[in-house]
Every structure is written in structure tokens, then in C-alpha cells.
């Protein structure tokens, strides 16, 4: 029996050591912050959103980046369209950059839906044309990225007609 015990202890320590190695801090906002905690506990990954302290409705905000105060003050439905886009871009930064470069893809269809644009293809062409303007540097952050997208859309003559929710 002793031999089993030893075996078990050695085994469990080796697993424990392995999982302890992968600790990351939780912080910041956007997808990264939700995932880091998860990555820290690969073995423990079940949920990404176990905050527990907030009420159900509040924890269902766009992302960690929309401050609770704002949600509490304006109500969840009070999140504006550009804030919705910001949440989308934060949570999908890699896909956003791809779609801007390709001029098409889900992120663009979604932005098109939020602004109620008539023609998503037109929106895609316009964003692709302005890729360098929207992504002026490699390590652009989500806030800047989404505000640049907003700027391009609102300054475009073509889009201001075809996207009524702008």
C-alpha cells in the first residue's frame, strides 16, 4: 500500500507543478483579460466569466471595458452604437484587422448591421481603401482601432447616405 501512496503523491506533485507553471494575472479589458485567467488554468478551463460578484444582468455587458458605472447609470440598453462597435472590436481584434485588409468578413457584416447599412460590400470596400489610415501602427489598441473605424465611416460621403443609423 505504501508504494501506491508514494506513487500517487509523486504523480500528483508532478501534475501540480505543471499547472502552477502556467499562472498569468487577470486584468485589463477585452478578450485578453477574459482569456488570460483561462490560460492560467488550462486544466481548469470551464468558464471564462466567473466573476460572481456582479448580478447576472450587469455581468452581461459588452466586455470588461465598458465600465459598470456607465452601465448602471444608463442601463444596459443605453450602450450606444459606437460603444457596441468598440466592444466588438475589443473582443475580435485579430478578426477585425483581417476583415479590414480583406474588405469583407463577419466583423464588417456586423458593423454594417449595427449601422443598418444598405450594402455591406460598399462598407467593406470603403474600409479596405482606408486600411492604412485605420491601422497606422502595428500595436494599435482596440480603442484607437474602433475610433478610427468610426471616423472613416462617419467621414465617408458614400456611407453617410447608405448607413441610416450612423
Amino acid at each position: 500500500m505504501k508504494i501506491f501512496l508514494k506513487f500517487f503523491v509523486i504523480l500528483s506533485f508532478s501534475i501540480a507543478a505543471n499547472s502552477a507553471e502556467k499562472q498569468f494575472g487577470v486584468g485589463g479589458c477585452g478578450l485578453g483579460s477574459l482569456m488570460m485567467g483561462k490560460d492560467g488554468n488550462q486544466v481548469l478551463a470551464i468558464t471564462t466569466n466567473g466573476t460572481g460578484t456582479q448580478t447576472f444582468g450587469i455581468s452581461s455587458g459588452t466586455s470588461n471595458c465598458v465600465p459598470d458605472k456607465k452601465i448602471k447609470k444608463k442601463g444596459l440598453s443605453g450602450v450606444s452604437r459606437s460603444e457596441e462597435i468598440k466592444g466588438l472590436v475589443e473582443g475580435n481584434q485579430t478578426a477585425t484587422l483581417n476583415d479590414l485588409a480583406k474588405g469583407s468578413g463577419e466583423i464588417i457584416w456586423t458593423i454594417s448591421d449595427v449601422y443598418n447599412c444598405e450594402d455591406p460590400l460598399e462598407l467593406g470596400e470603403e474600409l479596405q481603401k482606408n486600411y492604412k489610415k485605420i491601422v497606422p501602427k502595428v500595436d494599435i489598441d482596440a480603442t484607437e482601432l474602433s475610433s478610427n473605424i468610426d471616423k472613416v465611416i462617419s467621414k465617408s460621403d458614400v456611407l453617410s447616405n447608405s448607413c441610416p443609423n450612423l
Binding site: 499547472s19 499562472q23 481548469l44 468558464t47 466567473g50 475580435n92 463577419e106 448591421d113 449595427v114
Partner: peptide, 17 residues
């Protein structure tokens, strides 16, 4: 993308396997 997911998961409070 803008749909919502309703997920049921455990709040894991320990990193000890």
C-alpha cells in the same frame, strides 16, 4: 456575432488539480 451565449460553468476557486 452579436448574439448572446448563456453558459453554465463552475466557478473554479482552486488551481490545485
Amino acid at each position: 456575432l452579436l448574439d448572446y451565449a448563456i453558459n453554465f460553468g463552475a466557478d473554479i476557486t482552486s488551481s490545485n488539480p
